Amino acid sequence: MAVPYTIVPKKNNLVTPPEVKYYPIAVGRQVIDLDQLAKRVAQASSMSVADCYGVIIALTEQIAFELADGNIIKIKSLGTFQLTISSGGVEQPTESILPHIKATRIKYKPSKELQQKLKVVKFEKK
Protein backbone atom coordinates (compact mmCIF):
# COMPACT_ATOMS: atom_id res chain seq x y z
CA MET A 1 0.00 0.00 0.00
CA ALA A 2 1.44 3.34 -1.07
CA VAL A 3 0.21 6.92 -1.25
CA PRO A 4 0.04 8.15 -4.84
CA TYR A 5 1.59 11.50 -5.67
CA THR A 6 2.07 13.76 -8.62
CA ILE A 7 4.57 16.53 -9.26
CA VAL A 8 3.43 20.13 -9.73
CA PRO A 9 5.35 23.27 -10.64
CA LYS A 10 5.32 26.21 -8.22
CA LYS A 11 6.58 29.62 -9.24
CA ASN A 12 8.49 31.77 -6.75
CA ASN A 13 7.92 35.43 -7.70
CA LEU A 14 9.83 36.69 -4.66
CA VAL A 15 13.18 36.10 -6.35
CA THR A 16 14.54 37.80 -9.44
CA PRO A 17 14.25 36.33 -11.93
CA PRO A 18 11.17 34.27 -10.89
CA GLU A 19 12.02 30.59 -10.62
CA VAL A 20 9.98 27.45 -10.94
CA LYS A 21 10.57 24.42 -8.73
CA TYR A 22 8.69 21.13 -8.74
CA TYR A 23 7.08 19.63 -5.65
CA PRO A 24 5.22 16.41 -4.90
CA ILE A 25 1.58 16.54 -3.78
CA ALA A 26 -0.42 13.61 -2.47
CA VAL A 27 -3.29 12.46 -4.65
CA GLY A 28 -6.27 10.79 -3.00
CA ARG A 29 -7.22 7.38 -4.36
CA GLN A 30 -10.86 7.54 -3.31
CA VAL A 31 -13.21 9.11 -0.79
CA ILE A 32 -14.12 6.77 2.06
CA ASP A 33 -17.59 7.69 3.31
CA LEU A 34 -19.26 6.94 6.63
CA ASP A 35 -20.85 3.70 5.41
CA GLN A 36 -17.52 2.32 4.20
CA LEU A 37 -15.74 3.44 7.35
CA ALA A 38 -18.38 1.81 9.57
CA LYS A 39 -18.08 -1.45 7.59
CA ARG A 40 -14.28 -1.46 7.90
CA VAL A 41 -14.38 -0.74 11.63
CA ALA A 42 -16.99 -3.49 12.12
CA GLN A 43 -14.81 -6.00 10.27
CA ALA A 44 -11.86 -5.13 12.52
CA SER A 45 -13.88 -5.32 15.75
CA SER A 46 -16.66 -7.24 17.44
CA MET A 47 -19.24 -4.51 16.77
CA SER A 48 -21.89 -4.53 14.07
CA VAL A 49 -21.91 -2.07 11.18
CA ALA A 50 -24.93 -0.34 12.76
CA ASP A 51 -23.12 -0.02 16.10
CA CYS A 52 -20.05 1.49 14.40
CA TYR A 53 -22.21 3.84 12.37
CA GLY A 54 -24.01 4.98 15.52
CA VAL A 55 -20.79 5.50 17.46
CA ILE A 56 -19.20 7.54 14.65
CA ILE A 57 -22.31 9.74 14.30
CA ALA A 58 -22.57 10.20 18.08
CA LEU A 59 -18.85 11.00 18.33
CA THR A 60 -19.15 13.61 15.57
CA GLU A 61 -22.15 15.23 17.28
CA GLN A 62 -20.41 15.25 20.66
CA ILE A 63 -17.21 16.75 19.24
CA ALA A 64 -19.25 19.54 17.62
CA PHE A 65 -21.11 20.17 20.90
CA GLU A 66 -17.93 20.30 22.98
CA LEU A 67 -16.13 22.56 20.49
CA ALA A 68 -19.14 24.92 20.45
CA ASP A 69 -18.93 25.00 24.26
CA GLY A 70 -15.29 26.16 24.05
CA ASN A 71 -13.66 22.86 24.94
CA ILE A 72 -10.62 21.21 23.40
CA ILE A 73 -11.16 17.59 22.39
CA LYS A 74 -8.23 15.21 22.87
CA ILE A 75 -8.50 11.66 21.61
CA LYS A 76 -5.26 9.97 22.58
CA SER A 77 -4.81 7.79 19.50
CA LEU A 78 -6.26 10.31 17.04
CA GLY A 79 -5.32 13.83 18.05
CA THR A 80 -6.65 17.15 19.31
CA PHE A 81 -9.47 19.30 17.96
CA GLN A 82 -9.84 22.96 18.87
CA LEU A 83 -11.75 25.97 17.53
CA THR A 84 -9.85 28.96 16.17
CA ILE A 85 -11.26 32.40 15.36
CA SER A 86 -10.58 34.57 12.33
CA SER A 87 -11.38 38.25 12.78
CA GLY A 88 -10.47 41.79 12.00
CA GLY A 89 -8.74 43.88 14.64
CA VAL A 90 -10.04 46.75 16.73
CA GLU A 91 -8.26 49.88 17.92
CA GLN A 92 -8.88 49.38 21.65
CA PRO A 93 -9.30 46.20 23.73
CA THR A 94 -12.48 47.70 25.22
CA GLU A 95 -14.19 47.78 21.80
CA SER A 96 -16.59 44.99 20.93
CA ILE A 97 -14.80 42.39 18.87
CA LEU A 98 -17.91 40.29 18.15
CA PRO A 99 -18.93 42.19 14.97
CA HIS A 100 -15.41 41.62 13.60
CA ILE A 101 -15.38 37.83 13.95
CA LYS A 102 -15.43 36.48 10.40
CA ALA A 103 -15.22 32.74 10.90
CA THR A 104 -14.41 29.88 13.19
CA ARG A 105 -12.35 26.96 12.02
CA ILE A 106 -11.48 23.62 13.50
CA LYS A 107 -7.77 23.13 14.14
CA TYR A 108 -6.70 19.50 14.14
CA LYS A 109 -3.37 18.35 15.50
CA PRO A 110 -2.65 14.65 14.97
CA SER A 111 -1.45 12.65 17.94
CA LYS A 112 2.15 11.49 18.17
CA GLU A 113 0.84 7.92 18.04
CA LEU A 114 -0.91 8.57 14.71
CA GLN A 115 2.10 10.42 13.31
CA GLN A 116 4.31 7.48 14.30
CA LYS A 117 2.01 5.05 12.45
CA LEU A 118 2.28 7.17 9.30
CA LYS A 119 6.08 7.23 9.30
CA VAL A 120 6.07 3.93 7.42
CA VAL A 121 3.99 5.30 4.53
CA LYS A 122 5.42 4.55 1.10
CA PHE A 123 4.85 6.72 -1.97
CA GLU A 124 4.30 5.93 -5.64
CA LYS A 125 4.27 8.33 -8.56
CA LYS A 126 0.89 8.43 -10.25
Rank of each mutant, 00 (worst) to 15 (best):
K117I: 12
V120D: 11
T6P: 00
G79W: 02
I101Y: 01
E95L: 11
K74H: 10
P110I: 05
I106T: 15
K112C: 06
L114Q: 02
A44W: 03
E113L: 14
N13D: 11
L78V: 10
S48E: 02
Y22F: 13
H100Q: 15
R29L: 07
A42N: 01
L78T: 06
I72G: 05
K21Q: 08
S48G: 12
S87F: 07
I106D: 01
I57G: 06
N12P: 00
V27M: 13
T104C: 06
Y22L: 02
Q92Y: 13
V31P: 00
T6G: 01
C52E: 02
G70L: 06
M1A: 06
L98C: 09
V31I: 11
D33T: 14
K122C: 06
K10C: 00
I7C: 01
P110M: 07
P18S: 08
L34V: 06
A38N: 12
N13R: 15
I32H: 03
L34D: 12
V8G: 00
Q92T: 15
L98Q: 09
E124W: 03
K117Q: 14
G54K: 01
P24D: 02
R29E: 14
E19V: 15
V41Q: 00
V90S: 14
V15G: 09
A58D: 08
P110T: 05
K21V: 06
L78N: 02
P4D: 07
L98G: 03
I75H: 03
P24F: 14
L78H: 11
D35G: 09
I25N: 00
G79F: 08
K76H: 15
L114R: 07
I106A: 06
A44P: 00
Q92C: 09
L59R: 07
K109L: 08
K76P: 02
F123C: 10
K125W: 04
L78I: 13
Q82N: 15
L118M: 14
L118C: 12
S86Q: 13
M1H: 06
K119M: 08
